[in-house]
Design a protein around this nucleic acid. Sequence first.
DNA 1: ACGTGTTGGTTCAGTGACTGAACCGACGAT
DNA 2: ATCGTCGGTTCAGTCACTGAACCAACACGT
Lengths: 175, 175
Amino acid sequence: MALGKDYATQECSIARALEVIGERWTLLVIRDALYGVRRYNDFLTHLGIPRAVLAARLQMLTAEGILEKRRYQESPPRDEYVITERGIALWPTVRSLGRWGREHFSDTQLRRFEHVDCGTELGAYGECPTCGGVVPVEDVVMVPGTGLDPNPTDPVSRAFLKSKRLLEPIETVPV
Amino acid sequence: MALGKDYATQECSIARALEVIGERWTLLVIRDALYGVRRYNDFLTHLGIPRAVLAARLQMLTAEGILEKRRYQESPPRDEYVITERGIALWPTVRSLGRWGREHFSDTQLRRFEHVDCGTELGAYGECPTCGGVVPVEDVVMVPGTGLDPNPTDPVSRAFLKSKRLLEPIETVPV
DNA sequence: ACGTGTTGGTTCAGTGACTGAACCGACGAT
DNA sequence: ATCGTCGGTTCAGTCACTGAACCAACACGT
């Protein structure tokens, strides 16, 4: 264990968390899982991640209880990786990191996240300023922004061109 | 640029953020800076990070505007690294990650974070449940918990055995 | 029966980041 | 003159990531 693991001397739950999700690509896999990506091939094409790394991350995240491997069809046997409660609990972290990245390093707004009940954009860590509380992840709508490539090559990005709720599985539409 | 950088194909502010703070050790340096660590040697002994990596991270974080290098004495010339507004804006991310790590992977509570006005423990992303709003980082008190080593070797951990406000520079007490 | 395509991997050589130890320069103190 | 401290740099070795190739199970069309 080296990169992203083994901060052994740290008496700190942040270090403990980083041992689990601090490796390269890991948080992007979790982000995609929150967005509704479930299948190996969808992660692969959407992230542009090396296959070996993706296989390692999926296995590790499954072992840590953040994803759950689930058979969704027999013949041919196919599994999907569904995010668990423990993974969903990372949404405030993912949301606040995305907000920070947009506010400090991005010129255009690529996506917006709204409360499905009222359409208000979420605050810095996933709360609704209008309704005044934390919005359950399944009540968050992801709305595409103006800066997105209107004609992406991979099916996942194409699915993300429509508004959709978080966690809701994506529909991979063939070309 | 490789590990933690160059997620070039991602149209995503999370990926953009991870290019900046996604490398190994980087978020722990920011955590320590939020806790009031400012000097090279304090980062070094508290984190147990290789010197070369620390130097690289401090330089990069300074270049990205997250830390600011500041001369605090001449003769001998000494600089300290102070966290900027852009770095302070990462507090919700750091807080929520720490909460997640404690709730899912830690048995003991190592530290508590309270609102200085009312003593209430902060919520999942740094808000005060009692006062009902986001607490400015400088109004957060870090309180040592029971699981900490009562007699640590490095001066920074020793300084953390007392309650202190975030951002407030640590007092490095000689042994 | 046979070739083709899809999905979900494994293997492997090459690159590059991290690690730990050694070394170094500026200065203060004795 | 020597020692100690602070803030680095250098360097060999290790280990994770990268990208391409390969592979196995199965469905489908002819």
